[in-house]
Design a protein around this nucleic acid. Structure first.
Lengths: 207, 207
DNA sequence: CTATTTAATTGAACGACGTTCAGTTAGTCC
DNA sequence: GGACTAACTGAACGTCGTTCAATTAAATAG
């Protein structure tokens, strides 16, 4: 079969990403194959290679959409100025998304690129945007001339929360603790904020 | 070719795991295939299925060995009774192992089991052993009747440190911060311990 | 309106993957 | 020495991502 005009290139692109998303949500990221996506949209596998470099590229685009959605949910939360409250709200929204779309979140973080491949800039920027929300929530704890420390703290907190979510999602938490990820995250935020309050310049062990 | 007696079943098992480890260390876990392992030990792929249920099983055994090694390194550290110092030492050893064997660590954490599969008990026990070391380092911060809170804190700290290591290993940290994982981990431990000191019963936000 | 060019789409093919299994053969036992 | 057992292999199956010549519809030109 030759050229068809059922859908424009853009439509096809959207359909493909949507189909991929559907497969991942329904059956997990191990079930995502080029042939299945092609079947789902009624085209052949080869056609997808007109739209994407390869499956990796397609996944990155899909993940980009997930990042956007995540950012939308988080940025919809209006700040109160109280870091404890704001972080708790951000956390709530984040965990709610994770629970609503566990397989999408999985694809976002558990999928690692083949060796040597770098993430595209637009992708990194979106991550940075989400980090910005965390920084903003932490702002009241830092004077303006300590922006760098705020950056550092936000990134450490982000990575830490990610660890909890990641292990939880992989089913590696339930086996060693009865705490829910939510409880763990709250405990972390609580301890973290308390720790921040007391030491603005942390005392590292000597040596 | 029929039965050979070049190696006993145990020898073969060891050779296989060693070969798999070699491949992972040298070329990353994406390069680990049954056929390559078989080639490396001079047997055919089918033979491996006499020793392991499948590749998943083999990987779990390999990861079990990695956990053992990790535990050995960490348990070799004698405690001083000062949580800050002890945690820093544990952290140092942990990160040193991660840097020495990045691909092994990768396989340990980034490899997730197929849907519905549960980790075997002996595996979970080894993870719990490592967690025990963390708990021990945290001990001075908790009275004996607060063992449960200590458990919780240890697990939260562990998950948090894991998040830092995990993102760092995946190359997802360098793109958003200039901090080294070591610095981030130290900052976390510092803030965490300070936070623990002040609030033994954390104040969670209401509602 | 027809001829030519262009671009989208396909199906078959490639090599590699995990896994299975009938067939072969070396060791073991009587 | 013959029967039995268990290790080992090679070929095969179905799947994967990816490529590409061939086909055909749309776009353009005359």
């Amino acid at each position: 079969m030759g050229r068809r005009s059922d859908h424009s290139r853009e439509e096809l692109y959207e359909m493909t990403v949507a189909a991929a998303r559907g497969i991942v949500e329904a059956h997990g990221f191990r079930a995502l194959t080029v042939r299945k996506i092609a079947d789902a949209i009624g085209y052949s596998a080869g056609t997808l290679y007109n739209l994407f470099d390869n499956l990796d590229d397609l996944i990155i685009r899909l993940n980009g959409g997930t990042l956007d959605e995540l950012f939308d949910r988080l940025s919809a939360i209006e700040g109160s100025g109280d870091p404890t409250l704001d972080l708790d709200r951000l956390l709530g929204a984040y965990l709610a998304y994770l629970e609503a779309h566990p397989n999408l979140w999985n694809l976002l973080f558990e999928y690692t690129r083949p060796e040597g491949q770098v993430l595209p800039k637009w992708y990194v920027d979106r991550v940075a945007d989400i980090l910005g929300l965390l920084e903003q929530a932490l702002s009241p704890r830092f004077p303006e001339d300590r922006a760098n420390e705020k950056r550092h703290a936000a990134r450490v907190l982000w990575a830490s929360l990610h660890g909890i979510c990641s292990l939880s999602q992989a089913g590696k938490l339930e086996v060693v603790t009865t705490q829910t990820p939510r409880e763990m995250a709250r405990l972390l935020v609580s301890i973290f904020l308390t720790g921040l309050e007391t030491t603005s310049t942390p005392n590292l062990p000597g040596r």
